[in-house]
């Protein structure tokens, strides 16, 4: 294990009189995650790995990790994985998928990785209709490097590089890249979800399952954007950050399907 903060979690057997209602799937390693309290990454990791387990495709799936907070995703996902250079996950995933056309491939990327430095790779993979899933965590900030502006940072939002709030004249507009991708004919399924309530978690899991089924059926490119919080980067408690996300992020990044079965859905929000 490369991250000194990681330790294997203990496995406990079910005490007598109690019933097992959830078990860690074998697709998760059991390493204790390094994510901050309240962060959405761990939940999305878990959902992804649960779907692989339920579809019994652990041995057929290759994941591509990004650069960002989830750079260590491969410490938690018990599958074969490649760590890509910053922004290049969609190109790496293309290479894997093209050489292993019968396997399942996904990339897992944050907003800086996918929508700033990796924009070209992201857009062109979608436009080619690459038959893999991109999981896109949008929390509007660069978490790992300490809270700088992301391409998805909201106008007026304070970060360490927009101390007075993001202003359009200097930094342009929040980048709604999922909407852009939905317009490309190569994209088959584009949806925007969240994991901040039990209901939202269930919906996100359904979306992940759907995307892997599309991949199995060779339907083409799927993108699941998960609008997430960043309590540390936003400098809020987990509870407050979720409220802030609902009030501020969702109007700019409204939840729901942007494209299903290759058909664009009516626009919501801005």
């Amino acid at each position: 294990m490369d991250n000194p903060r990681e330790v294997e979690m203990e496995t406990v057997s079910c005490p007598e009189g109690l019933e097992v209602v959830w078990e860690k799937p074998e697709t998760l390693t059991g390493n204790r995650m390094h994510y901050c309290p309240g962060c959405g990454h761990g939940v999305v990791h878990k959902l992804l790995m649960e779907v692989l387990k339920e579809m019994d495709i652990q041995d057929k799936t290759i994941g591509v990790a990004p650069v960002g907070c989830s750079v260590f995703a491969y410490n938690y996902m018990n599958i074969d994985m490649q760590e890509a250079a910053h922004g290049r996950a969609a190109a790496v995933a293309t290479g894997v998928r093209r050489m292993l056309p019968d396997k399942f491939v996904f990339s897992y990327q944050g907003d800086g990785d996918l929508a700033a430095i990796g924009t070209a790779e992201t857009i062109h993979a979608a436009n080619r209709g690459e038959n893999f899933l991109v999981v896109f965590i949008n929390n509007g900030i660069y978490g790992m490097t300490g809270g700088q502006m992301a391409p998805t940072t909201l106008v007026g939002m304070k970060t360490s590089t927009t101390p007075g709030g993001r202003d359009v004249e200097t930094s342009g507009f929040p980048f709604n890249i999922s909407r852009l991708i939905a317009m490309l004919p190569g994209a088959y399924y584009v949806t925007r979800q969240s994991v901040h309530t039990p209901g939202a978690v269930r919906k996100t899991k359904k979306a992940i399952r759907k995307a892997f089924e599309h991949q199995r059926d060779r339907k083409g490119y799927c993108l699941i954007e998960v609008v997430s919080n960043c309590p540390s980067g936003w400098k809020m408690t987990p509870v407050v950050s979720n409220q802030w996300m609902e009030e501020n992020m969702f109007p700019s990044y409204p939840l729901g399907d942007l494209k299903t079965d290759g058909v664009l859905q009516p626009l919501k929000g801005n």
Partner: peptide
Amino acid sequence: MVVMQVESELAAINMVYGGAGAGARV
């Protein structure tokens, strides 16, 4: 052979990373 003209040399070398990493001669 899988032969692809892609969007840039940056993408090309990272596809080589992915494809060769998946065990193919690339």
